[in-house]
Each structure stands twice: as structure tokens, then as C-alpha cells.
Design a protein around this nucleic acid. Structure first.
Length: 905
DNA sequence: TTCTTCACG
DNA sequence: ACGTACGTGAAGAAA
């Protein structure tokens, strides 16, 4: 058996894959569909052929001789879409990482490289498979050179194979004649003009009859069809040019280094890391076992300390270190609670030394006393270890790098945050668009090292199980955490500094992490019984509505199912209001509301929807989160949002009903503890004020100086109406435009919101911009700057990348533009309230007050206030919120107190 | 797991 | 011509 060479036409396959694979992108916003498709095709071919050698050819972007000839003839080539262009360098990077030979040479097209290499290999006695999406290559086919054309359809890749005989069978011409066939018929995709009026059929007939281009012209007078004959004669120059264009060179000065082109050693750690970054989860398996061998080098320096005394001494010694990495592993005590216990401590002091200690926990004796109870020296050493950790982390002599510090404050010194650096927060600031920031991702993206992933190590096990089942793995996993934290700090700190976010990190996010920790720890008291009663009260009405809806529909169905509901309303009942979504009928509230006037059943459905939402999400949902202390401890997440806001989960306490009275009643179950009251302060239109400041628009700033209803003033200015005569409608419209500006205005969006025509909406916007000209200037500049830099920035330097801005897709690009307008405004407002939170928290703490900050809802702070401290807390909130930022307009707040959250709003 | 809907700012 | 307002999280259904 002779040896085999696989040659791949890089751009052509990438192109095929780009159009054949649905749009994909990773968390960085990089499009990846073409790369994904390419790799799939390549792996498929490799598995089929098992070749000895492999090379990929690319065009160099500089125009080649053939292009120039063509461009001289007719314009330029169609540009490559940006989504594809950005994938080319990454594709090459991944091929390089896989040690696959890339052939490219200025002045040579990929076709010529492929043709030359194929012919040379054939002469050397190899079997050649040439993979391309381009039928042009068929002219190269012989008995030993197989042209393979992959077709991607419906996610499946099928490959058409052509030896010389197959070309003859398919086109009735030999591969060499195929060149002239192409020259006659042309190829728009390949920019070969061809002879006008000669298409595939005519060209084929001519070639079959005359055998060559020369022979056709020798007998051109015999051609019966007048129009074809004349076109051939008139456009002989085009035929000749086309032949030159269509001919692939096979005699270039080019050598393939067969040693380097060996088809082996693809699965390198670099390639694995890249695949991971590109989020090709199902390709990762190919790399894993080879990559695993490489992991162990770092892990060789990891060790476990078994003896508690030894570990305590180690912690003491570590206090002399200036920089350490520390990672504490905690897990909930059991599935019923959020309460966690400390399971392990990993400490990394240098590249050579990272250690791990596993804590022991005394377990309650179950059932009868064991005979061996005396023999088991199982004591809970949490207290001792915690004490040592507190000592280690107190003061600023030892800088501690860690991952997710908020989850570890239980065991650390909390008198300041200056000694901590959280690589999780740093990674978030550097790119807030990612879905998760696990240790593996940070290690690979920022340190370029490969570490075993959580899923890989744990499977479905938790850390506790892992410790008992595979202590070595558990130790290694924990140590990686400390190691990556310590190493990552240096890199991330530099990156933050370079991006101008050092201050944001050190003075805003790190202190905030402790504030959020305290808020979570504090929680908020909820009246369990009242919440239950609220839910029960809903049930009766829900059941009544369910009956009524089923009766009116004449059929029993699941009202909660949009699919069934759509079918019942728009098919069974024949209610007009047609399709909307790709999966079926839309039954969203705005659709149903338009129908509710005419159809009683629709009114019932809307009411039903509202009530079941309250029951499931709030009544039942919240009840499940009340802990033993009678309080709900939400998670405040600091590394989720794209704009810098914080988010709340398990449960979400940032979306408790407010706008509708019935829902709002739920707020009555949130109560202060005995002897306390709630004090709630929210910023008044903080985003619009931020807009006024950032744009510097004198009119808008002036409007705020008047301390009057801003929407009314806007209406007065925009509609040229005296302030007192502004109608409610005018005010509502002005308010919608104000909101629209903050969201990244579009006439369509505004028209939807106000139920007016796009044209009218556009007029409002125009008038608004005429009133506030600098606002227009400002948001235009935001978009322009973002396009140039690829990201937007808040007043405090927080960045948000906007990859969509370079999209060739209108929808995506428009989205990017709206985001560019919104993110700096929403983000700056988020920054301001974060500053306020830190200031309020500090003031309460420094003055030794009992009152506590417990909730944040984007522009609102809730303080559980000791009654005797009311006056002082009022001052603290007011002062600190107002002075959180120095803007051209004042920051105003609305502040209320009450015996529950309902009263305090 | 993904989609649809809906609660909040 | 394209088809949306910005930012979240949770529940239930469908796939």
C-alpha cells in the first residue's frame, strides 16, 4: 500500500463551513461556526483516510497575479463577511497548535499550491486526497489524485469524491478538458467570466463535440446556433482570459516538508486550550487523554499535609510571605440548607510549593454508639483552622490572591479588603460578557495553562465525596485553585492596570464583595404564615378561572402551555391574531391585551397568568427559601451582568412585584426584626441624570436644576407647550422617549412602546434631539467610539466589549449600537450605587450602629434600621447616596420608612 | 437543555 | 428588506 497525503483547501473549506454551519459564537463574542465546521470536516476525513501526511493551503491576502488580471477586467471581489474574516487567524492558530503544516505563499493562490503539491506527491508515488469546496480543483484529478468535495447539509457532512474517471462520468469531459469547460461557462463564485450566453449545457455540448477550446474556435463557423456562434467570436478574448484564470498551476516553486507534515501529534495542550476557549465541547474529548499527561507537571509540586499541627505551623510560616494564593473549599452541610462547612484549605506560596489540608468534621453519632467510637479521633477542627486563617489574613503584610472571596469571608479576616485580590472579579471586569468564570477558564485564558476542569474531576460527585473516594484528585483540584489564584493575580492585575480598571477593582469591587457578603449573611425576615396565606388566597380564584377558561374554550387543556393555549385560541376558537414566533402562535401579554376587549376568555387568561405567576414564583417560590432563622438570604452576584449591575438569585429579590397592587401586597411579608423598621431609599431617575451629566447638555441639566417633574419639562420643551398646559399624553410620550434614549433609541422600539407609527416615533425622537442637541451628539459619539475601540466605558472606567458592532448582520449591528448607547449609562448608574453602598456600609460600621444594609435593587437600598438610630441612618443614607458621584446635576433620592417593605416604598 | 413568558430596575 | 427597545432570574413546557 502506498502512502497517503491529504491536502486541504483552507479558505474554501472554511467558507463552506461558514455558510453550512449555523451561527455560533463563544463567550468572548468571537464567531466560531466556520472553524467548527472546518474541524469537523477535517476530523471526518482523517478518520476515513488515516493518511500519513497532511497539509492545509491558504491564500495570502495580497492580491495575486490572477486576481489582478481579473480585477482589471471587472471590479473587485466580494468582500468576506466580518464574521468569517475574524475566524481566519484563529483557524490558523488552531492548526498551528495542532502542528499541522500550513502552506501559504505570497503571489500564489491556494489552488496553485494544492495543484503543485498534489502533482509532485503523485510523481513521488503517493495517493493524494485533495479536499476543497471548489469544483475548479477537478482539473487536477487523476487515478491517484482524488478530489473530495464536502457538502454540509442539515448538520451532516457528505463528501463527493472525484477521480479522473468520476469527472468524466459527471461532466463527460476529462479533467484537463474541464479547464476549458469552465472557461466557456464561467464561474461567478470563482470570478471567471466565461463566454456570455454559454452556460453549463452549451459548454458541455461544445466540449463533447470538439474536445478542446482550440478546436471549437477552429470550427466556430460550423456552430449552428447563431447567438452562441457570434458570442464566441466576439468574446474570444474572454474565453482566453477565462482559460488562464481557470487553469491551476502545477509547477510552482514549492516543497512540502514531509517530516513536518506527518499526520500525528495533533492533540497538544495548546490546541486543547484553544478548543476550550472556542467552546467546542464535543471536540474536547479528542484532546483530553493526551492533554492529561501534560497537566501533571505543575501538579507534581502539590502536596497534602495530613497533620493538623504541621498545617497550623505552615499557616503561621506563610504569614511571612508577601504574596500567597489561598483557596478554601466549602460545601453546604446538606441539601436542605445553604449553610456551608469548610472542607479543605489550599495554600500556594510559590511556583514550587502548594499545599492542601483536609478538615475533619465530627459527625453526630447515628443510632447506637459504636464500639469503636473511642478509637476514632474525629474532632471538628474548623474552629482552630478558622482562627489560623483569620490570623493569616489579618493585616496587609500578606497579600492574598483567591478565587471568589465572597464565599470565603466566613473564615477570613473582615476588618478590611485591601489584602485580598479576587481573580474571579478581575476576570469579570476584564470581560463581563462571559457566562462563567471557572478556574479552568481563567487558567487557560490568562495563564495559558491547562488544568483539569471541575466537571472532569467531580463528575456528579461533590467535594466531600471526592475527598473520600479519590483524595489525590481532591488535593490536586484544591491546589490548582490556590496556584492559579496566586499566578493569576500578577497577570490579571497588569491587565486591569493596562485597561485603566485598577481603581475600579481595588476601590469598588473588592470592598463591595464584603458589603455583599454582609448583606447576604444578614438576610431579610419573611412572615412565613402570611406568605402561605397569601398563596392560599390566590388558589381559589385560580381554580375558578381555570374552570371558566376551559368552559369558554369548550375543551380542557393546559393553560400554562403556550403551545396548547395558542392552538385553542387561534385555531379551535378561530380568534384572529395570527402567528408570531417561529415555534407557533405568540400568546405574550401584549398580544393578548389587544384581544382582551373583544374576548372575555382572553381577559380570564391574562388574570390567570398573573395569579399563577404570583403563586408559583413568589408565594411558593419565596417560601422555599426561608431558612431556619426565619429569613431569606439571597445571593448577590457580582460577576454576572454585562453592564456592572449586581444580580440576585436563589431567590431573586430584585424582582418582587411592585407595579400591580395585588402583587405589591407581597412586600408586606418582608419585615424588619423586633425593634427595627425598614428604611428604603431610591435614586430618582439616576440614569437620566447620568445622561445629563455625561452628555453635558445644558438644556437637560437646566431641566434638572428646576427640580420639577422631568418628564413634564421634557414634554413642555419637546412639544413647545407651556409647562402648565402639558397634557398627560404629552407627558407620557416624553417619558417614553426619555426611557428610549437610555435604552438606545430606535423609532421601531418607541413606536411599539407607545403604539404609534414608526414615522411618528421618529418625529418624537427628532424633536427630542432638537431640544437636547448635546444628547444626540453624545450618543452618536458613544457609538462611534465603541465602533473604534470595540468596547464602551462608564464614568469610572468599567468596560463592556461590544463584538456585535463589527457584525455584517444588520440586526446584530443595530443591537450593538443600542448597547453602546445603553451600557455606559446603565453602567455608570450601577457604579454610583455601588459607591453609595460601600459608603453607607462603612458609615454604619464605623459609627457602631446596629442598623444594616440588607437589599439593593439597582437604584434602591433597603436598610433594616434600629428605631433609635432612625434619624442618623436617614442622614447616612441621604448624605452618602447623594454624594456618591459629583455630577453636573444633583443626585436626588426618595426615602421612606415603614414596618414592612410595602410601607417603606 | 432551550424556549416562552413575565416579574423587577 | 431585514425585525427590536437596555439589563436581569425563575417557572413551566417542550424538545
Amino acid at each position: 500500500m502506498s502512502q497517503k497525503l491529504v491536502l486541504i483547501d483552507g479558505h474554501s473549506i472554511l467558507n463552506r463551513a461558514f455558510y453550512g454551519v449555523p451561527d455560533l459564537s463563544n463567550a468572548e463574542g468571537l464567531h466560531t461556526n466556520a472553524i467548527y465546521g472546518f474541524l469537523n470536516i477535517m476530523f471526518k476525513i482523517l478518520e476515513e483516510e488515516k493518511p500519513e501526511y497532511l497539509a492545509v493551503a491558504f491564500d495570502v491576502h495580497a492580491p495575486t497575479f490572477r486576481h489582478k488580471m481579473y480585477e482589471a477586467y471587472k471590479g473587485t471581489r466580494k468582500p468576506m463577511p466580518e464574521e468569517l474574516r475574524e475566524q481566519v487567524p484563529v483557524m490558523k492558530e488552531i492548526l498551528k497548535a495542532m502542528h499541522i503544516t500550513i502552506m501559504e505563499q505570497a503571489g500564489l493562490e491556494a489552488d496553485d499550491i494544492l495543484g503543485t503539491l498534489a502533482k509532485k506527491a503523485e510523481q513521488a508515488g503517493l495517493e493524494v486526497s485533495l479536499v476543497s469546496g471548489d469544483r475548479d480543483l477537478l482539473q487536477i484529478a487523476t487515478d491517484h489524485i482524488k478530489i473530495r468535495i464536502p457538502k454540509t447539509k442539515q448538520g451532516r457532512t457528505e463528501i463527493e469524491d472525484y477521480y479522473a474517471a468520476d469527472v468524466l462520468a459527471a461532466y463527460q469531459v476529462t479533467p484537463l478538458q474541464f479547464i476549458e469547460l469552465k472557461a466557456l461557462m464561467g464561474d461567478t463564485a470563482d470570478n471567471i467570466p466565461g463566454v456570455p450566453k454559454v452556460g453549463e449545457k452549451t459548454a458541455q455540448a461544445l466540449m463533447v463535440e470538439y474536445g478542446s477550446l482550440d478546436n471549437i474556435y477552429a470550427h466556430v463557423e460550423e456552430i449552428s446556433k447563431k447567438s452562441i456562434r457570434e458570442s464566441l467570436i466576439e468574446h474570444k478574448d474572454l474565453a482566453d482570459l477565462s482559460k488562464t484564470l481557470a487553469t491551476i498551476k502545477t509547477d510552482c516553486e514549492l516543497q512540502l516538508d514531509y517530516e513536518q507534515a506527518r499526520a500525528e501529534g495533533f492533540y497538544t495542550p495548546e490546541a486543547y486550550t484553544l478548543c476550550k476557549r472556542l467552546e467546542f465541547k464535543n471536540l474536547l474529548g479528542r484532546f483530553e487523554k493526551d492533554a492529561a499527561a501534560n497537566d501533571s507537571k505543575i501538579a507534581e509540586s502539590f502536596r497534602q499535609i495530613e497533620d493538623k499541627k504541621e498545617f497550623l505551623q505552615y499557616l503561621k510560616k506563610a504569614q511571612k510571605q508577601k504574596e500567597i494564593g489561598l483557596w478554601l473549599i466549602t460545601e453546604p452541610v446538606d441539601a436542605t440548607t445553604k449553610k456551608e462547612e469548610l472542607l479543605g484549605v489550599a495554600l500556594s506560596v510559590s511556583d514550587e510549593e502548594t499545599v492542601f489540608y483536609a478538615l475533619t468534621h465530627e459527625k453526630e453519632p447515628e443510632g447506637q454508639l459504636s464500639l469503636f467510637a473511642e478509637a476514632v479521633e474525629s474532632v471538628d477542627d474548623t474552629a482552630e483552622i478558622t482562627e489560623a486563617l483569620q490570623e493569616l489574613s489579618a493585616g496587609t503584610d500578606t497579600q492574598i490572591a483567591t478565587f471568589d472571596v465572597k464565599h470565603q469571608y466566613d473564615y477570613l479576616d473582615r476588618s478590611s479588603t485591601e489584602q485580598y485580590f479576587d481573580v474571579l472579579i478581575a476576570a469579570y471586569l476584564l470581560n463581563p460578557l462571559k457566562n462563567d468564570y471557572d478556574m479552568e477558564a481563567i487558567a487557560s485564558e490568562h495563564l495559558g495553562i491547562l488544568i483539569p476542569g471541575r466537571a472532569e474531576v467531580f463528575g456528579k460527585r461533590d467535594f466531600r465525596t471526592l475527598l473520600s473516594e479519590d483524595a489525590g484528585k481532591a488535593m490536586e483540584y484544591a491546589c490548582y485553585g490556590a496556584y492559579v489564584s496566586r499566578k493569576g493575580k500578577k497577570v490579571l492585575k497588569d491587565k486591569l492596570e493596562a485597561a485603566g480598571m485598577k481603581c475600579l477593582m481595588e476601590e469598588m469591587e473588592m470592598p463591595l464583595s464584603l458589603v455583599l457578603y454582609d448583606m447576604q449573611k444578614e438576610g431579610v425576615a419573611v412572615k412565613r404564615e402570611e406568605l402561605k396565606a397569601y398563596g392560599d388566597a390566590l388558589v381559589a380564584r385560580i381554580e375558578e378561572l381555570e374552570q371558566s377558561i376551559h368552559t369558554q374554550a369548550g375543551t380542557e387543556f393546559n393553560i400554562n402551555s403556550p403551545k396548547q393555549l395558542g392552538e385553542v385560541l387561534f385555531e379551535t376558537m378561530q380568534i384572529p391574531g395570527g402567528k408570531k414566533t417561529k415555534t407557533g402562535y405568540s400568546t405574550a401579554a401584549d398580544v393578548l391585551e389587544k384581544l382582551s376587549a373583544d374576548y372575555p376568555i382572553v381577559r380570564d387568561i391574562l388574570e390567570y397568568r398573573g395569579l399563577t405567576k404570583l403563586k408559583s414564583t413568589y408565594a411558593d417560590g419565596l417560601a422555599a427559601f426561608i431558612e431556619e432563622d426565619g429569613r431569606i438570604h439571597t445571593n448577590f452576584n457580582q460577576t454576572i451582568t454585562a453592564t456592572g449591575r449586581i444580580s440576585s438569585t436563589e431567590p431573586n429579590l430584585q424582582n418582587i412585584p411592585m407595579r400591580m397592587e395585588l402583587g405589591r401586597q407581597i412586600r408586606k411579608v418582608f419585615i424588619p426584626r423586633e425593634g427595627y423598621e425598614f428604611m428604603d431609599a431610591d435614586y430618582s431617575q439616576i440614569e437620566l441624570r447620568v445622561l445629563a451629566h455625561m452628555s453635558g447638555d445644558e438644556q437637560l441639566i437646566d431641566a434638572y436644576r428646576q427640580e420639577e417633574d422631568i418628564h413634564r419639562i421634557t414634554a413642555s420643551k419637546v412639544f413647545h407647550t407651556p409647562f402648565e398646559q402639558v397634557t398627560d399624553l404629552q407627558r407620557r410620550n416624553a417619558k417614553a422617549v426619555n426611557f428610549g434614549i437610555v435604552y438606545g433609541i430606535s423609532s421601531f422600539g418607541l413606536s411599539q412602546d407607545l403604539s404609534i407609527s414608526k414615522k411618528e416615533a421618529a418625529q418624537y425622537i427628532e424633536q427630542y434631539f432638537a431640544t437636547y442637541p448635546k444628547v444626540k451628539e453624545f450618543i452618536d459619539k458613544l457609538v462611534a467610539d465603541a465602533k473604534e475601540k470595540g468596547y464602551t466605558e462608564t464614568m469610572f472606567g468599567r468596560r463592556r466589549p461590544i463584538p456585535e458592532l463589527s457584525s455584517s448582520n444588520f440586526m446584530q449591528r443595530s443591537f450593538g449600537e443600542r448597547v453602546a448607547m445603553n451600557a455606559p449609562i446603565q453602567g455608570t448608574a450601577a457604579d454610583i450605587i455601588k459607591i453609595a453602598m460601600i459608603k453607607v456600609w462603612k458609615a454604619l460600621k464605623e459609627e457602631g450602629l446596629k442598623s444594616r444594609l440588607i437589599l439593593q435593587v439597582h437604584d434602591e437600598l433597603l436598610v433594616e434600621t434600629a428605631r433609635e438610630e432612625e434619624a442618623r441612618v436617614r442622614e447616612i443614607l441621604t448624605e452618602n447616596m447623594k454624594s456618591a458621584a459629583d455630577l453636573a446635576v444633583t443626585l436626588e433620592i426618595d426615602l421612606h420608612t415603614g414596618n414592612n417593605w410595602y410601607e417603606a416604598k
